[in-house]
Design a protein around this nucleic acid. Sequence first.
DNA 1: TTTGCTTTTGAACGCTTGTTCATTAAATTG
DNA 2: CAATTTAATGAACAAGCGTTCAAAAGCAAA
Lengths: 194, 194
Amino acid sequence: MARTTGSHSDITGPRVRAAALRLFARGGYAAVSMRAIAAEVGVQAGALYNYTPDKQSLLFDLMQAHMTDLLAETPSDADRSELQQLQDFVAFHIRFHADRPDEVFIAYMELRNLTEENFAVIERLRRDYEDRLETILRAGVASGDFSVADTKIVTLAIIAMLTGVNTWYRAGGRLSLDEVVAQYWDMVRKAVTA
Amino acid sequence: MARTTGSHSDITGPRVRAAALRLFARGGYAAVSMRAIAAEVGVQAGALYNYTPDKQSLLFDLMQAHMTDLLAETPSDADRSELQQLQDFVAFHIRFHADRPDEVFIAYMELRNLTEENFAVIERLRRDYEDRLETILRAGVASGDFSVADTKIVTLAIIAMLTGVNTWYRAGGRLSLDEVVAQYWDMVRKAVTA
DNA sequence: TTTGCTTTTGAACGCTTGTTCATTAAATTG
DNA sequence: CAATTTAATGAACAAGCGTTCAAAAGCAAA
């Protein structure tokens, strides 16, 4: 038998990506088989190839979509003060990442499973994102609002600190996301001012 | 043929662990085959089983040894001020991790490839390490040296920030390790004081 | 109802996986 | 030199891998 019921092309495609996302985040790209993804969708392995040319593209597309969304939604209001821009960035980063734990996990853990060309694309997007933050820091140093010795280091330190939230934050836990944002903003603000 | 030359038991064992460490860090546990490890050592796959009962133990032993070393070497001098203890911790963490990039990478990336029981052991060691830092922070809050709202959050934020150094620091790069330590200590100090 | 298109099946492909084990050779001991 | 122990080989195992494809089945249009 084939085609168990109805026409499913526009439904199965998103389901394949959703299943891959879930399973990659849970078990890791290399440990998840195409058959496992197919089973999660409720389909045979061969059917996946109507929606992706291969397993590698499945991973790459998920990561690229995530990074593109991240960059598209990053706030940047040049009218606001550098301190306000930094606060916007901190709040945005924490909230955006808290909303997408699986995407974030994959984007950080599966870089080494990308082919060389695919890695270069994702790495470029990652650097673009870092540059957004460093631009704010540099402007703040120029205006005298911030006191940091090396903007590159502080950029990486802040991003690492903020992304770390995803390793422990769970909705409905001890702290609300508002409280988390407030606490991290407090640390960041103190760290970059004199 | 067998045993190509010489008696190798006490040499091959460490070489197996070293090869596994290198390859796991490079390609990920799931993507590295026992045959690949054997090839790195210069031996056939079957010979590995003279030194490990299975692949999982190879991973677990590497992670457990790393975490045990980390805890054993963590400084804790109760005679020093809380600010000094925190500074010691920051410097120690950065230097210890910079010395062991492969071990650190594995310890953070391969947790999900541990069996349930093995994971519980490693997770416990990780929490023990976090407790060392939180103990310092709590004492500093009690003495009035530190001003932090939630010691647990600050503990995790500091560790995430410090561990992030490993994603970009390379010996012989733009900054010396001394400079890196100084910069991160500056940020941490400002973040935890009023 | 027939035709044509889309989607899925299920088998098959060649290859790799972790692990076991009888066999063999080197090293050590007596 | 002979006997024993240690350590490695290399073939074999069953299972699983990503991917391909002819055949079958569901759906839409004529």
